[in-house]
Design a protein around this nucleic acid. Structure first.
Lengths: 216, 216
DNA sequence: CGGACCATGTGTGCATTTTCACAAGCGCGA
DNA sequence: TCGCGCTTGTGAAAATGCACACATGGTCCG
């Protein structure tokens, strides 16, 4: 994952800020569930283990959403963040690798919920092709990747193959025209210019915890 | 996720360094698969999209593992990293939340592989209790959390419940004596002193990609 | 045995990120 | 309408992380 794009007035926004915006969105959802309509950055920080100055600074990159002396309107701020993150339009994605993780992500709410739509799950193993997933999709042949991306107007590729296949799949995705890829295979892949590959290795997180346990 | 423990000679090790050690471990595995026994930091960086100086600096916190003029012995370095991360002893974990993600993680290789062992999967929904998982475990009652942690010598708790249950489950885990928790629920939880809660929100990563697509 | 070569380990400076601290601004009540 | 209290938005400072560049110390060949 490399550096980022620019803000409305040419200021680059850091990846860390963007990631936190997602977190803030989750917080807004939770607050609405709890019936809270207005909140200050301090109360938000206390409740969700965040830093109030950082919240204000992150938001300030995109506008002035708060009211001094009062705080933020939860419903309103939620909508702003949705727009900033581009979550107000449908995003179609395909998953390559129909193993445990791939099939689970098919109907994981964070993936198929909101405006994200899983429009295909592919695998290169002939014995898996045609298998139904709990989400109602059939596993399709990974060889048809390019065709599927074009026909179904896919924007995002998700890799849930073993490590050994990840590099080659990511290249095929780039070739098919995908500009952003989420890689769950436990390996770093090299990406072409103009293609963003974000690697999320679930095992890494467990190993960090193991380190913590080991070093008191 | 807060600051970290200390190194052998009292230097704090950053979370980022620890996370990268896990990445290096994956790289070593891949190199061994490819039959490569020796590698320089530069070659490692080129191959896996890393920075050579950073690799050297990360490793140097823990010792001198390389040979000048030659590079690192892959097999040897792998073993060092395993020891540093504490992956040379068994780590037992339980998963609370027997939904899609929870059951998938049960037999996800990054979790049940290596020295990590899933010794229980719990849920509070009576209709799920007793369900078999593909990994051969039966879903147990989340009310038995404390008992199970003690009896089975669990060290790590994994939360895969909906957001609304995460705070309460993490508190019960802390009460049961767990010191580290991996939280997949899409919400930040407050943690007691001495308890490390690491939140991994899969949706956040997708939303980062959405931001990227939106802002060219 | 000696020197050329090469990659490590690290001191140092730069860049980014976080935190602090406060002026500016809004609402509310008198 | 005016003043008080509260919270935002934001410079500036502190902390953290990153990358360069080179001295150090090995290997290997002649």
């Amino acid at each position: 994952m490399t550096a980022y794009k620019r803000h409305i007035d040419n200021t680059a926004i850091s990846d860390l800020t963007v990631a936190r915006l997602s977190v803030y969105l989750r917080c807004m959802d939770r607050l609405l569930e709890l019936g809270i309509e207005t909140i200050s950055s301090q109360a938000l920080a206390d409740r969700f283990n965040l830093n109030s100055a950082q919240i204000r600074k992150d938001l300030a990159y995109f506008g002035e959403f708060g009211v001094r002396g009062v705080g933020y309107n939860v419903r309103e701020l939620r909508q702003y963040v949705v727009e900033i993150l581009g979550l107000d339009r449908e995003r179609r994605l395909i998953i390559v690798g129909a193993g445990n993780l791939g099939t689970a992500l098919c109907h994981y709410s964070g993936f198929s919920g909101g405006n994200f739509l899983v429009v295909g799950i592919l695998d290169s193993d002939p014995s898996r092709i045609g298998d139904p997933t709990p989400a109602g999709l059939l596993v399709e042949d990974a060889a048809r990747l390019g065709e599927i991306v074009t026909q179904r107007q896919v924007e995002i590729g998700v890799i849930t193959t073993p490590a050994s296949a990840a590099q080659s799949i990511s290249e095929k995705m780039a070739e098919a025209g995908l500009k952003v890829i989420l890689n769950f295979a436990p390996i770093r892949v090299r990406a072409d210019e103009g293609v963003l590959v974000k690697t999320v290795d679930l095992g890494v997180h467990l190993e960090e915890l193991s380190f913590h346990l080991t070093h008191v």
